[in-house]
Amino acid sequence: MSAKVQVQTTINNEPVEFLCEPRQSLLECLRDIVGLTGTKEGCGDGNCGSCTVKLGDRIVTSCLVLGVEAAGQSITTVEGLAHGNTLHPLQKAFLENAALQCGICTPGFLIAADALLQKHPQPTEEQTRFWLANNLCRCTGYDKIIRAVQAAAHEINANSGAAQ
């Protein structure tokens, strides 16, 4: 066992410090040390996207990031998507469109879709499918997920239009 390392991060807009071994993935650190178990592990090798978090300004599969690499960085997990008790439009759209069945891939899809909507506020179906191809879902056949992302985009755009 190597010496543990103190890591200072910002997680979901709160300063968080944790102590981890260098071999521990960011996913392990989030789940087992920080206690944020909303981020899921489906494969451990970056191919299912269930462990997607936002690290800095990019989404990553947290199973392929070392916890120590997160030092000084800000991280957003599914626990940080809602504003208090108000669900993020994507969370709301996933519920209203029945875009989840078992729900294990949902946190990863939500974080990935949030990043998509920041890059493409009104993505096409093709853009959505391409962006989300790193997130596997085995229950839905993706149909309702794609619809939910499009519905959330509409809602966000409508609201931002109304605010102007």
């Binding site: 997607t52 990019r58 990553v60 599969t61 392929l64 998509l116 191809a133 790193n134 997130n135």
Partner: peptide, 9 residues
């Protein structure tokens, strides 16, 4: 190369 998340790294 990989998917969106992989390309972040």
């Amino acid at each position: 190369i990989g998917g969106t998340q992989i390309q972040g790294r």
